[in-house]
């Protein structure tokens, strides 16, 4: 029995010894940032907009940064789970977040989340997608006026889809309610595909989302939430022209946890800016129909804070802030 116990112990030591000997050469050596792989957290599932964008810039960013980049998808709870994980990470520059507006500028107002916009230091804005309100070609709501008149005549009957409570399409509905003094019926769906399906199937009358989906589903654009008319849609009036000076756009930006050293942020910023000017990346983005729109850390911070405050006001007025 004792001999048996000794041989088990020896076997265990032998195994551990072999494992360590085999793995030792892979131990990292000490150097400057970055000296090992950088993890980019994407708080959404694979194949979604943010994920594709990240994967499109990954190879060139990796080259410009001088380190391997690993993309980690942490989906769940409208992007808050992955974003919380990124906020909690060590602020050493080896964990980076690429994400859209929702989790950092809208979700914190709706419920208790263990992070906020200021849990992050911005690195740079990557892309921006203006929201466009749309309906189907057969719908009776072809202009903003149709919607406003219809809503004034029958409050709470025009069905406006959104991709969930607190998402940007929902914010667009609230903004329209406030600006025109009307009551629209909000139908929250789980995700934008379901919302588009409802629009195409006739269950929803109107949906606001990024402009790329208009040609995809053959939709009719009613108005765009931007300051100037979109180059691809010169006939679509802007909300500003129609008298409502609101700009709503979904954007994707890069963040690091608050407290990351300045030098590290500078390295990342330089690499990001270089990547977004690279021709190969621009070609990929054209394929994905994404508009690159870089903003440096300071400008991005101001921009994001502007969104944060605006969303809070809208949600508060609608009685949705806890």
């Amino acid at each position: 029995m004792r001999k048996f116990k000794v041989s088990i112990g020896m076997a265990a030591c032998l195994c551990l010894g072999i494992a360590m000997a085999v793995s030792a050469p892979l131990a990292a050596a000490k150097a400057d940032y970055p000296d090992k792989h950088v993890t980019v957290i994407v708080a959404w599932g694979a194949g979604g907009g943010t994920d594709l964008l990240t994967r499109a810039i990954q190879p060139i960013l990796s080259k410009n940064l001088g380190a391997d980049i690993v993309v980690k998808n942490l989906p769940g709870a409208a992007g808050t789970i992955g974003t919380a994980q990124a906020a909690r990470a060590k602020p050493d520059g080896y964990t980076v977040l690429i994400g859209p507006a929702g989790p950092v500028t809208t979700q914190p107002h709706l419920r208790d989340i263990p992070y906020d916009l200021d849990s992050f230091d911005p690195v740079g804005r990557i892309a921006i997608n203006v929201m466009v309100t749309m309906s189907t070609k057969e719908s009776k709501y072809k202009t903003l006026n149709d919607i406003i008149e219809g809503a004034k005549a029958n409050p709470n009957t025009i069905r406006c889809a959104s991709s969930g409570a607190g998402t940007l399409p929902h914010i667009a509905i609230l903004a329209l309610n406030k600006a025109a003094g009307i009551q629209l019926k909000h139908l929250p769906y789980k995700g934008s595909s379901n919302a588009v399906k409802a629009l195409l199937g006739g269950e929803a009358d109107v949906f606001s989302d990024q402009a790329q989906i208009i040609p995809r589903y053959d939709l009719h654009a009613i108005a765009s939430w931007s300051a100037e008319r979109l180059p691809d849609y010169p006939n679509v009036p802007t909300m500003k022209e129609l008298g409502y000076d609101f700009q709503i756009a979904n954007w994707n930006g890069m963040f690091v946890p608050r407290g990351t050293p300045e030098t590290v942020i500078d390295t990342l910023t330089t690499a990001l800016e270089k990547t977004l000017a690279d021709k190969a990346v621009l070609d990929e983005m054209a394929k994905l129909k994404v508009d690159i729109s870089y903003l440096d850390p300071q400008a991005f911070k101001t921009f994001a804070e502007g969104d944060y405050v605006r969303n809070r006001e809208l949600l508060k007025e609608a009685g949705l802030v806890k």
Partner: peptide
């Protein structure tokens, strides 16, 4: 059996 266990476990 010690040896198979050690080998498989590693």
């Amino acid at each position: 059996r010690a040896l198979p266990v050690a080998l498989i476990a590693t």
